[in-house]
Write a protein that binds this DNA or RNA. Structure first.
Length: 502
DNA sequence: TGGTTGACTTGGCTTCAGGATT
DNA sequence: AATCCTGAAGCCAAGTCAACCA
């Protein structure tokens, strides 16, 4: 961990040292009193050498390692559910280490303890074979609760949260849940117009609580904000819609030539910054002003409501409707609209894929799915640039040769010279295609520098939209979904025809 | 009504296998 | 065969939301 910047943070060092001292013997505690006087270079070196050793293993050793890994997965990575053999998602218990957390987490650096069999609850079928605990140990408990999906659990010592062993996304159980999720979002589509009408009415309600609900829901719908459930104090300070504070928004009666602008700036899930400037309706602007009156920056913007109230009122519009459904609904709707807008029949498969990625990107931007620019970004762009340059030169050369061939064919026509012209024409065409492909790749990568597509693809986009699009436009599904994704979305690949509409 | 707990989904980052390139 | 590079798998933290309890 010494290579990481966060080990230099005061909170990290303080937490780590406190927990470390707990583990010390009486003598050690007497001796080791100041972290800054501790020299970890030897153990650091030891681990570096270990890593080096591993890297330098012979082919045979590597192969043996891999086989052992496969054997373990084969033995522990599957379970039987309702008579089907299903893949388990995370079948290994989390190893001990130093807790990091995201953003300015107050518990960073604390010691995450090793989990013992005595910490583990096994949840299996009544008549299934109970897994043996390691020699000399016993499980905390063995239970047979068929109302939950987890196979094993333990309590983690940093926050006291429960951790679970659950099934892989490719499993029937998870697939069915996923399908249901999208069906709920599709039901929202049918009533969203009336919900929008209602929350606009709520902006002028006599009750401040109702107004807050109306504005919050508008943000959730229009900006795809998360619900914003309140959280413990001893976690990183992040917010969602309902937990927004006055300090997170700035009102501009006019900005960039537009009226009623709201500027958002806050840290959301995983301490990812959300920054956005949006023009809003006059009534929304007026309400926000009222909500902010006589408040300090650190006061809640929506002080009369919370996610539980919001969800309760949503469930009256439609059973199973909660705040997060809007994200799924808006993401999937956006994908479908963008795909319709960006795809035409005359496109090549590569161009269609770029269109798909652009549609996917529109969703990722809506949901604020960001990533750090890849460490290798500049380098890999440069590489691509060089490839393009080389290809261009080749193209110029090929064109020259074609011209030459044409010329000699004109001067002394023969079967042979005709063939040569055709051959050169073909070469030019091929190079041209390869060049466009590279340029498309470049555009795609550039536009994707700080945008993460994976999260929306995996969690927000109804896979049936993608499957239908692939079928309609003759794009092989393998070009859009990799193996894992195809496994996860097997239900949609089976189910959706090209006529599917979200 | 408000706080807590439990179960499940969502999320970005790291690691590493394996294909591409030299 | 060695090295490079990338995509995917894996990791585990951090959300959402319902049930439960006082």
């Amino acid at each position: 961990m010494l290579d990481h910047e966060y080990t230099t943070k005061e909170v990290f060092q303080k937490n780590f040292f406190a927990d470390w001292r707990e583990e010390m013997t009486h003598e050690e505690r007497k001796l080791i009193k100041n972290l800054s006087k501790c020299d970890f270079s030897e153990i650091h070196k030891y681990f570096m050498e270990k890593a080096e050793e591993k890297k330098n293993m012979t082919k045979e050793e590597k192969k043996a390692m891999k086989e052992e890994g496969n054997r373990l997965t084969e033995e522990y990575g599957f379970c039987m559910l309702d008579g089907h053999r299903e893949k388990i998602g995370n079948f290994r218990v989390e190893p001990p280490g130093l807790f990091r957390g995201r953003g300015e987490h107050p518990k960073m650096g604390k010691l995450k303890k090793r989990i013992q069999p005595e910490d583990i609850i096994i949840n299996c079928g009544k008549d299934s074979e109970i897994p043996e605990p390691p020699e000399g140990h016993r499980w905390k408990k063995v239970q047979h609760d068929n109302t939950v999906t987890w196979l094993a659990s333990w309590v983690e010592n940093i926050q006291g949260h429960i951790k679970y062993i659950m099934l892989n996304p490719s499993s029937k159980l998870k697939g069915e849940k996923d399908w249901q999720k999208y069906e709920v979002a599709r039901r929202l589509k049918l009533i969203v117009a009336s919900i929008r009408e209602q929350y606009r009415k709520d902006w002028s309600s006599r009750e401040m609580k109702t107004r807050q609900k109306g504005v919050a829901l508008y943000f959730i719908d229009r900006l795809a904000l998360r619900a914003g459930t309140e959280k413990d104090d001893d976690t990183a300070d992040t917010v969602g819609c309902c937990s927004l504070r006055v300090e997170h928004i700035t009102l501009h009666p006019e900005l960039d030539g537009q009226e009623y602008m709201v500027e958002f700036d806050f840290l959301g899930k995983d301490s990812i910054r959300y920054y956005n400037r949006v023009p809003v309706e006059k009534q929304v602007f007026k309400n926000l002003k009222i909500f902010m009156e006589n408040k300090d920056p650190e006061d809640d913007l929506f002080d009369r409501i919370n996610t539980s109230y919001l969800n309760k009122s949503l469930s009256e519009s439609m059973p199973e409707l909660t705040a997060k459904v809007f994200r799924t609904f808006n993401a999937s709707t956006t994908l479908q609209d963008q795909l319709n807008k960006l795809t035409t029949d005359d496109m090549s498969v590569e161009e269609k894929i770029l269109s798909y990625n652009r549609a996917n990107r529109a969703v990722a931007i809506l949901c604020n799915h960001q990533r750090a620019a890849p460490k290798t970004f500049e380098k890999s762009m440069q590489l691509l640039q060089e490839k393009i340059k080389k290809k261009k030169e080749q193209l110029v050369e090929a064109k020259k040769e074609l011209k030459q061939a044409k010329k000699s064919h004109k001067e002394t026509p023969s079967e042979k010279s005709k063939k040569l012209v055709e051959k050169k024409e073909k070469a030019v065409r091929r190079l041209q295609e390869q060049l466009t492909k590279l340029q498309l790749q470049m555009t795609d990568r550039e536009e994707n520098k700080v945008i993460a597509l994976g999260t929306s693809k995996l969690n927000y986009l109804d896979p049936r939209i993608t499957v239908a699009w692939c079928k309609k436009h003759k794009v092989p599904i393998e070009k859009i979904y990799n193996k894992t994704q195809r496994d996860k979305f097997a239900w949609a690949i089976d189910m959706a025809g090209e006529e599917f509409q979200f």
